[in-house]
Simulated assay, not measured.
Amino acid sequence: MTVQTPPRARRRRSGRFAPYVYLAPAMTLFALFLALPIGYALYLSFRTVKVSGLGLGKGARTEVWAGFDNYARSLTDPDFIDSVIRVALYGLVLVPVMLGLALLFALLLDSKRTRGRGFSRVSIFLPYAVPAVIASLLWGFLYLPRVSPFYYVFDKIGWDAPDILSSQWVLFAIANIGLWGGVGFNMIVIYTALKAIPSELYEAARLDGATEVQIAWRIKIPVVTPSLILTFLFSMIATLQVFAEPMTLRPLTNTISSTWSPLMKVYRDAFTRDDIYSAAATSVIIALATFALSFGFLRLVQRRAFSQENS
């Protein structure tokens, strides 16, 4: 005699697997296009090629276990160390100015005295929608003295404009491109947080005689501090991954080397020198450094960032 499962029990059993059915496409894409490439890069970072004889013929080049040799070479490579120093200076120039302008624009747009908010908001955000390669090309031609309209105007006025693509100014030239594209995104994040502040706080402050500057300094900025922390984290990660801007400007000047940034060194090792093993090790180092800095920064500011959520 067979015992049939009640319909309610069958529905309950099938309902247990329903979330996994919905998650299956996302999990499959995650495994194929993120987890597997990361695992393969990690595997390659511990491998190298052993050349026998002249390296000619079948079996002359074999892939062998290298241990941590690729990591040791990357960490002691002067080109990699110099690229890290350049990116650190790039971040020190870019991130504070970008977040300061984003906060200023967000506060101005949130002010009642501001006119044309919609147009201003779109105008500030629009550069972020321009791809980094296109923006780098546009600014690159504006930097070239022979084709730039700015240099033409300066020449007619009689001013001596510096060569922005020279070794002395090229870091600021690259930072300017990141600044032009990044202010809008951060401004939108901060402005959205400002719009979530209850208007009763402003009314109470005005009744107490607070000016708009005092309201911004004592109410708005403290309330949007979690958003400032979030934008700083995103900006720091983007700084460590800078690639498109210097890579696009490189053909326009000889002051940008093929290893100007860590990711450019990875590109050179993988596609110019055909050393995918060293490139994989450097990629893992960059990923670990990004994770360590991000995690350390969040641990440092977690009380300030999440105090409102925990209260």
Rank of each mutant, 00 (worst) to 15 (best):
L137C: 05
I237V: 14
G15R: 13
D82E: 11
L298A: 05
L92M: 13
R115D: 05
L104S: 09
I188W: 00
W139P: 00
V130A: 05
R16L: 15
G209K: 11
Y143S: 01
T282P: 04
E203Q: 13
P25Q: 11
R61W: 05
G59S: 03
Y22W: 14
R86Y: 04
I197G: 01
L230T: 03
V301A: 04
S136M: 02
A193L: 02
L32W: 12
G116K: 03
W139S: 02
V84D: 00
I124T: 00
A193I: 00
L44Q: 04
T62H: 06
A35C: 10
G118E: 13
V130I: 14
R11K: 13
R146W: 10
P78S: 03
T48I: 05
L144D: 03
R11V: 09
A196W: 08
G178N: 06
L104G: 07
D155Y: 15
G91E: 06
Y152G: 03
S111G: 05
E203M: 10
S148Y: 07
S14T: 13
A204R: 14
R11L: 09
W217M: 15
L108E: 05
L29W: 10
F105I: 07
V301G: 01
G116E: 05
D82V: 01
L207S: 14
K58A: 13
T114F: 07
L144E: 06
V51H: 09
T282I: 14
T248H: 02
V213A: 14
A26R: 06
P226H: 00
Y20G: 11
G59C: 05
I85D: 05
R218S: 12
L36C: 11
I81L: 10
T2L: 12
N70A: 07
M27P: 01
S83R: 01
R206P: 00
W260M: 08
L42M: 13
G59R: 02
Q4M: 11
V87I: 09
Y267K: 10
A41T: 10
F297I: 15
R16I: 15
G59I: 08
P222V: 05
S199K: 12
N176W: 08
I188P: 00
I215L: 14
L29A: 13
P222C: 09
Q308L: 12
P78A: 06
E245C: 04
R304H: 10
L109C: 04
D155A: 15
S14G: 13
T28L: 14
I177K: 01
F172P: 04
Y71S: 02
F17E: 12
F119L: 15
P246I: 02
M27D: 04
P246F: 01
L23T: 09
S257C: 09
V224K: 01
T76R: 08
